[in-house]
Nucleic acid binder design. Structure first.
Length: 572
DNA sequence: GCCGTTTTCGGCCCGACTGTTTTCAGTCG
């Protein structure tokens, strides 16, 4: 898929046009197109031009540019632009507080063309004296360069969410807040997060702001106003806090949850209907009368839309779906009836069956599958056929006295680097459920990896492909795999694909999940639990499913034990 | 550059905070 590549180029073009001082609406058009292409579920390289033009934000011109790039691997317009604007100059835009106007000014007046130049001249106070630039601006630029060097890259949701909750707890305890909510991309459950957005109501906003900028987490204060402040915390993340009146809480929550693209679409709809939306409410244009805003639902209702859950707010078709009454009823955590990927002491898990059963029952589950590693994963004390049969026997014994709960005897079988399976069919045949996955040879070619997964899916005894891209967010890139092909074969063979809920994995990702749904592939959400508290990772997995528009019926482990057993048999 | 049962041209989301200014441009989300 060239989608991400083309999106990046369009964003790059937008940067370059910005520095040139081009028409801001033209720039926005490139950014919007880039965003829409990123969220696309089909391969843009295989989409004909007239289909391309049906994608929102892509017209005659951009469709042509996409075609040109797909055909020739380059884009003349982009190449020309890069010649006009020195390489490195667009890097300046990544310095916080430094935008296109200032970058252009620095280039034209001081011939600054990269970060090194900028840092040197700022230190030597050579920027002062330019129109609108004095000492404070130099300071802020140096600060921004520092922040950039420290790396402000996106961090995994699983790491950021606990941090955000901790800040919320502190505010609740120390500041005079009434309502308090996480907003932004955390509320949309994006798998990686750039900053933490918090919204509050209070009778004394000033006091709240004052408490906020003095929290023990604070490393630096970027902005401190009466209703809005921004800090950098020790972990390097930016945290924004906004305080509004009770009567505006819903509108502010919608505004602050985003995404930006989603908000813009709503506001455009509002304008066409003679309305205006901002963080204070939804208003009638002609007399500025406030029609709503206390509840988030107000905004959608007054626009004539059903409530759109935060996980869907990416402007990837949810507004159209809402408008035409085709909004899916998203799966919820409470729909989950069991976990089909769990490790025990028999391999590298920490608990025996009893402890796992107790923990699962506490979460309202009706079943779990014990899927310890197969022998190929020596490091995880993987099981050979003999040990596996012993484990199965013990599971059967326990099942006999269990009431209202079942253990499935399963295995997480390693797909070896040469493409062969770690256990023979006559062993797999004995199991209630077989999960297969890749643990080695991550750097193989796309063809090799895809072939390994396909041959696993063609095996009638393999039910589930686990963590299908092998990524560990921030630590290991996904391996190169032809997801289109994988999903096609999954659909053909009735193989279920896993959303691994472990917060650093979260693969399938949201876009792949959406693709899977469109292709009719069944999904399972599993935690890959090794310690009982990891059962709680299910919430992360469900959020990815929701971001991929999945409903209860799309997901295997929302079904009863009996239905699951039948579904597994069906493949064979 | 996109888009249109009000338009094929003329619009295009909205507001807070900062630093530089004496009323506002730039940046950000």
């Amino acid at each position: 898929m060239k989608n991400q590549e083309i999106a990046r180029i369009f964003n790059d073009i937008a940067d370059l046009l910005e520095i040139k001082g081009e028409n801001p609406f033209r720039i926005r058009a490139y950014r919007r197109a880039a965003l829409n292409i990123e969220g696309l579920t089909r391969d843009i390289a295989e989409t004909p031009k007239d289909e391309l033009m049906k994608i929102p934000g892509i017209g005659q011109d951009l469709a042509g540019k996409i075609e040109e790039y797909v055909k020739t691997e380059r884009l003349q317009f982009y190449e020309d632009l890069k010649k006009e604007v020195p390489e490195g100059l667009s890097m300046l835009l990544s310095v916080p507080s430094l935008g296109p106007k200032t970058a252009k000014l620095f280039y034209e007046r001081l011939k600054i063309k990269d970060l090194q130049d900028l840092e040197r001249l700022a230190r030597e106070h050579k920027l002062s004296g330019l129109p609108g630039i004095k000492e404070k601006t130099e300071e802020n630029i140096l600060k921004g360069i520092e922040m950039l060097k420290r790396g402000m890259e996106r961090q995994p949701l699983g790491k950021v969410l606990p941090l955000a909750n901790d800040i919320l707890e502190h505010l609740k305890k120390k500041a005079p807040v009434n309502k308090l909510s996480i907003a932004g991309s955390i509320r949309r459950w994006k798998d990686t997060i750039k900053d933490i957005d918090i919204l509050a109501t209070s009778e004394n906003p000033k006091e709240v702001m004052n408490t906020f900028i003095h929290l023990p987490h604070v490393k630096d204060v970027l902005m401190h106003g009466p209703t809005k402040s921004s800090i950098i915390i020790k972990e390097g993340l930016q945290v924004d806090l906004r305080v509004v009146e009770e009567d505006s809480f819903g509108a502010a929550l919608a505004y602050f949850t985003g995404s930006k693209a989603h908000n813009i679409r709503l506001r455009e709809m509002a304008v066409k209907a003679g309305l205006k939306i901002n963080e204070y409410g939804i208003f009638r244009e002609k007399d500025d009368r406030k029609l709503g805003g206390k509840e988030e639902e107000d905004i959608y209702r007054i626009l004539g839309l059903p409530y759109i859950p935060p996980e869907m707010r990416e402007d990837t078709g949810e507004i159209e779906a809402a408008f035409t009454g085709r909004l899916p009823k998203l799966v919820e955590l409470s729909d989950i009836k069991g976990d089909l990927h769990v490790h025990s002491k028999w391999s590298d898990g920490s608990h025996d069956f009893e402890e796992l059963i107790d923990a699962a029952r506490e979460r309202g589950y009706k079943y779990i599958a014990i899927t310890d590693h197969s022998k190929g994963l020596g490091i995880a004390r993987g099981l050979n056929a003999e040990r596996l049969m012993e484990e199965k026997k013990e599971i059967e014994t326990i099942n006999k006295r269990l009431r209202g709960f079942r253990l499935l005897a399963g295995i997480e079988m390693d797909i070896r680097s040469d493409g062969t399976m770690d256990l023979p069919d006559d062993v797999l045949k004995e199991m209630d459920i077989v999960v297969a996955s890749i643990h080695s040879g991550f750097r193989q070619s796309k063809e090799q990896i895809t072939k390994r997964l396909v041959s696993a899916m063609r095996n009638p005894f393999i039910n589930i492909i686990a963590h299908p891209t092998g990524r560990l967010i921030g630590e290991r890139d996904p391996y190169d795999v032809d997801m289109n092909q994988i999903l096609k074969v999954a659909q053909e063979t009735g193989t279920v694909i896993e959303i691994n809920a472990y917060p650093l994995r979260l693969d399938l990702n949201d876009i792949h999940v959406k693709m899977a749904k469109e292709m009719g592939v069944q999904i399972v959400i599993s935690t890959d639990t090794h310690i009982t508290n990891q059962f709680d990772y299910m919430a992360y997995g469900v959020s990815i499913a929701r971001r991929g528009w999945l409903e209860k019926k799309d997901i295997l482990n929302t079904m009863s034990y009996r239905v699951i057993k039948k579904a597994i048999k069906r493949k064979q």
